[in-house]
Design a protein around this nucleic acid. Sequence first.
DNA 1: GCGACGGTAGAGCGATCATTCTACCTTCCT
DNA 2: AGGAAGGTAGAATGATCGCTCTACCGTCGC
Lengths: 183, 183
Amino acid sequence: MTTRKEKIASDLDRQFAELGFAEQGVEALRAGADVSLRTLYKYFPSREAMVVGALEYRDRTYFDWLAGGPDSGVEHVLHPIVRLGDWLREVANTGCLFLNALADHPDSAAIREVVIDHKARLADEFRRRLRTIAPDKDIERLAETLFLLHEGMTQTARLHGRERATAAALRAARAALAAEGIA
Amino acid sequence: MTTRKEKIASDLDRQFAELGFAEQGVEALRAGADVSLRTLYKYFPSREAMVVGALEYRDRTYFDWLAGGPDSGVEHVLHPIVRLGDWLREVANTGCLFLNALADHPDSAAIREVVIDHKARLADEFRRRLRTIAPDKDIERLAETLFLLHEGMTQTARLHGRERATAAALRAARAALAAEGIA
DNA sequence: GCGACGGTAGAGCGATCATTCTACCTTCCT
DNA sequence: AGGAAGGTAGAATGATCGCTCTACCGTCGC
């Protein structure tokens, strides 16, 4: 079931991703979501709430999108990085939506919180997957490395292109796994 | 010799780094640089020019700052990553100034250009250093990987802390070098 | 039929922004 | 001394912003 709020949040997310945060006023967001200003403010009572709503929407859909793929082995661990490559192909390549939001609203505690939550969830995803292939090892350092590669890939894709960034991230990830004696 | 314009550019850079781009109006920039509005506009005739001026200033100083350190071996190659750790300690930890500028002004061709130039120069720095330790190898893939780690480290430092991000980047860089049979 | 309800359109408000302009001051060359 | 050059302070301007408000409309149940 898609609620009306969910539909609007999806439109907001798409607009922020395509056009950035700074250059997108509330009136433009309203037009893009095809609702009246009053209705928009009913569900998101301030511009900041619209940004938070869009980020929360993307947080939800991103982890759904991550599901599937190989369910064991090294490929299972590397799947979020491969999948990020697909994501970067589908959406406009303007870097990480969460970090862009942070850059545009450095003083908003609510936005900072949702960004940190999303990134923490992503780091946990890597830990969870690593434990499936190395249950008796300390995988914390590897999890940090994979997270770093994931972040770097998003930013690098803007400058070096998606394919080269993905390949570099995967190469480095495999080397890091090998260096720790995994796979 | 420090020109007046250079001094103002340095003040702009500091202010953008500490407080971000979005929340810093021209009047605040003027106060921070301790000049009159007219003088500020004389050297930087628009707000966009102020952003470009600050980025160009940082581009210049960053490569000066990078000089020094070990002048051969793997440590020479990894020096930009180590040095980035120092940089992240000195300045406010708000991510990469260049990518933040891009996030805040997605439609400005001038800003996009200076960002891309800076990042290309950084990638070249890694290529140059790699050639000193592996003159007869194809180091392009390694250069891409080191660049990716550098970018990822900046972003990860905001969330995982500077030390852990630096350590993860260095570990992954050494593993990548080893995987390619270097060092 | 009709009133309540939940929606729309869009004008209006106050604040803030980038930019320009006026008026004055200091410094230094001749 | 005098005047040009180049600085200052800060008010004025016009545009834009986030947000609120008024007025109106279609669709229900009864």
